[in-house]
């Protein structure tokens, strides 16, 4: 019997931990119990930036990671979260499942990791305590960004003054005014209760966040060929998690509005302004990522074409 530790930063009772448990159950069933997975939610094994390196080193066997953590190992994956890189969610799903999957399988393999599938985190927007409802208003303000190039380039492209903060400090930072606004995934914003402090949300949906499930290649190569095939076959359909996350997002934003929260949906010219700024950030990001980044960017463009026809 092989025991595998599966790490995730998602807190218990969230769709992501449910997904991890589904993966664990599916693998156990497919291998007839010869591979057993223990899920460690809520960053129990350390924060994901540290754990993903431990997976590459083979100390932790597998885990689910956000785009931010994954881009420490394969920087080009940050392009998937680049502002307005997809025309719509359906296109993103199609491109990820049918085209980008293979691209990143190869890239992670080079880094001693086995890519086992996508997870869904949802759309990003900007939260603020005082009313900030447009790009012009956000410009010049102090904006919390996630510890990733994508997040800071995006905020800077709209003229914001970016302040990098871990998610644990976001609520206090918004309350004290250390930042005026925060770049957050919608579901994190609503489910962490940040909406109570920052009742204003711009649904820019500027970044579609997907995560990855990864396994250590050292551990993988110790499995028998049958177990490897069985594990591949046990991959949980990504559409289940997507549906759950998108459903939860919608429900939680409904609750947020009921509790007096205000959501602005940029449209028309305003949306165009956001997209123009996003394009700048996107190009800057591609430039920073060098040749490999340019190659992946091209593959994304091909995938988009294939998925819109």
């Amino acid at each position: 019997e092989t025991k595998l530790k599966y790490a995730t930063s998602a807190p218990v009772k969230t769709p992501w931990v449910a997904h991890a448990n589904q993966v664990a159950a599916a693998v156990q069933e497919a291998t007839g119990g010869s591979v057993k997975i223990d899920v460690f939610p809520g960053s129990q094994l350390g924060n994901e930036q540290d754990v993903i390196r431990q997976v590459a080193r083979g100390r932790v066997q597998m885990g689910a990671f956000s785009n931010t953590a994954a881009s420490l190992i394969v920087p080009e994956i940050s392009l998937l979260a680049a502002p307005y890189i997809w025309d719509n969610v359906a296109q993103a799903d199609c491109a990820l499942d049918n085209h980008m999957d293979a691209v990143f399988q190869d890239r992670f393999k080079e880094m001693d990791l086995v890519f086992l599938g996508w997870t869904e985190v949802g759309q990003m927007g900007y939260a603020s305590a005082k009313p900030i409802e447009s790009l012009t208003e956000l410009s010049g303000k102090k904006v919390r960004v996630a510890p990733s190039k994508t997040s800071s380039l995006t905020a800077e492209s709209v003229g914001a003054n970016s302040v990098m903060l871990p998610i644990t400090e976001v609520a206090s930072a918004l309350q004290t005014g250390l930042v005026d606004s925060a770049d957050l995934p919608g579901l994190a914003f609503t489910s962490l209760g940040i909406g109570k402090i920052a009742p204003h949300w711009i649904a820019t949906n500027h970044s579609h966040q997907v995560g990855v499930v990864l396994m250590s290649r050292k551990v993988w190569s110790k499995l028998t060929p049958e177990e490897q095939t069985q594990m591949q076959a046990a991959r949980v359909d990504p559409t289940i998690l997507r549906k759950q996350v998108r459903g939860a997002e919608k429900m939680m934003f409904g609750k947020f509005e009921e509790a007096g929260g205000r959501i602005v949906h940029p449209e028309g010219e305003e949306l165009d302004r956001w997209k123009q700024a996003g394009e700048q950030a996107r190009l800057a990001l591609v430039k920073e990522l060098g040749d490999k980044g340019a190659a992946v960017y091209e593959q994304i463009q091909q995938a988009k074409r294939a998925c819109s026809s």
Binding site: S43, N47, T168, E169, A171, S172, T176
Partner: peptide, 14 residues
């Protein structure tokens, strides 16, 4: 405490 439990230090201070 904030570091090992990932709790907001500003909140702990308050």
């Amino acid at each position: 405490f904030g570091i090992v439990t990932e709790t907001s230090i500003t909140d702990l201070f308050k």
